[in-house]
Design a protein around this nucleic acid. Sequence first.
DNA 1: CCCACTTTGTGAAAGATTTCGCAAGGAGCG
DNA 2: CGCTCCTTGCGAAATCTTTCACAAAGTGGG
Lengths: 222, 222
Amino acid sequence: MKLSRISDSTVRRLSSYCRVLEELDREGRRMVSSKRLAERGGVSSAQVRKDLSYFGSFGRRGLGYNVPRLLEEIRSIMGLNRTWRCALVGAGHIGSALFSYHDFRRRGFDVVAIFDNAEAVVGQKWEDCEIQNVKKLVPEIRRLGVDIGIVATPARAAQEVADLMVEAGVSGILNFAPRKLEVPKEISLRNVNMTIELESLSFALRASETRSRKKRAVSVDE
Amino acid sequence: MKLSRISDSTVRRLSSYCRVLEELDREGRRMVSSKRLAERGGVSSAQVRKDLSYFGSFGRRGLGYNVPRLLEEIRSIMGLNRTWRCALVGAGHIGSALFSYHDFRRRGFDVVAIFDNAEAVVGQKWEDCEIQNVKKLVPEIRRLGVDIGIVATPARAAQEVADLMVEAGVSGILNFAPRKLEVPKEISLRNVNMTIELESLSFALRASETRSRKKRAVSVDE
DNA sequence: CCCACTTTGTGAAAGATTTCGCAAGGAGCG
DNA sequence: CGCTCCTTGCGAAATCTTTCACAAAGTGGG
Ligand SMILES: NC(=O)c1ccc[n+]([C@@H]2O[C@H](COP(=O)([O-])OP(=O)(O)OC[C@H]3O[C@@H](n4cnc5c(N)ncnc54)[C@H](O)[C@@H]3O)[C@@H](O)[C@H]2O)c1
Ligand SMILES: NC(=O)c1ccc[n+]([C@@H]2O[C@H](COP(=O)([O-])OP(=O)(O)OC[C@H]3O[C@@H](n4cnc5c(N)ncnc54)[C@H](O)[C@@H]3O)[C@@H](O)[C@H]2O)c1
């Protein structure tokens, strides 16, 4: 299985199929067809079948997919049947929201250390985790065996924090700062950029307003 | 200009070019080539030129693009040279992080109302904005002329909140709840789903671990 | 003005992703 | 079993996106 040639869009859809399957499981459904799974996930049924076909044949013709079994298969494909150790850097607004979002822990993303550089917050305890000075980042991340670093500092500090994380040996980085980070190519990087989402919404709204203005103009003309 | 056939990836890149251009502007650069813009934005120079070419010719051969002029052009294309009125629903962790993130306001996304359904928070004031009961959402959003609704409630309440927003006449919705929302097709919808980002990171890490395990095994064999 | 060099804008090619369409497997019923 | 109705898995076609490659336009030095 050439995992490297699985497209990012497929991976993201698998993640959303997980959520649909969990819901179906809670509803007590045993089996689900690609059609129904597709409807709930907002894609086409052919897309669901194609996505799954990259990894194997999990369904039964005429019947569909067994819900708990498919959920387990996808979890295993995605590496979700284990715990990932995360370190959060930047104990500000976003950092605090992330830390208190227990759904991540439930899904196996465990924040095992928090770092900041502000005197005012270093030493504070969030639940059972003490915020440490960012100077201790490298040794602490090494000691704790952290897999994933989460960057939740202001944009100007993001690159230097990412550099420290790489030095400390994390395998992946989730970045919330609105700035392109440079990391060695063997480190996986994902960005959450809310500004891009808002701005692309702005583009869509402006585009649809232009369209309706044009439509009105045409009606008046006729 | 057929704006409807501009791809989402192009729009998202335009948004990130904006950030690069702002930075270049702050650095006092007058002109920039597609090559340099591309490097800073993490894409290819042909991609930059192609993206811009959908909207017109903004550069000068042999010279590149005028930084402030291109920034203005892109802002105008994206609808960023105006203020968008936003309503935030869900005054919890994410809601609070968003509200206090003044960079959105600076970019023209103004939160003009906050709603929640919890007795404990309704009536509180965040800066000069009072959190209102979600029951008042429809009339208030109508009265204030809100363009964009931001869903920051738990997933189970997200659809009903979105329905209210649509009833009240918003043009677009930004959704933070990890659930597919149904909205009429004339309403623009964007999702910020951090779970998908984390899970796709998990997939990438698991994939690279598998690869290095295989590599080790091969070395041992040989 | 000429020449060497730079950079845009854009068709056309290459590459990636999605959708189509259907053979084949399986359930259920009489 | 024979017939009908579903549904998967998957190659092939269609569509969408990115990259290539180059003519055309511009700069600057002599
Ligand atoms: N709050 C939001 O809604 C929001 C939205 C979009 C993007 N972001 C981005 O997320 C990031 C964090 O935003 P926020 O609102 O939480 O900011 P914040 O100011 O509330 O928190 C940032 C934290 O990082 C710490 N910090 C600064 N420099 C540091 C360093 N070198 N090492 C370690 N810690 C350091 C600060 O002490 C602070 O505690 C920013 O890059 C911001 O652009 C935030
Ligand atoms: N906190 C995070 O880091 C994070 C990360 C990823 C996704 N999310 C998603 O963002 C959303 C909000 O998360 P949060 O951590 O801020 O949750 P939260 O519990 O801190 O806040 C949710 C708020 O919504 C309010 N609310 C509930 N039902 C409502 C209703 N019907 N109408 C109006 N308000 C209502 C609650 O009173 C609460 O104030 C959730 O869907 C969550 O899954 C959060």
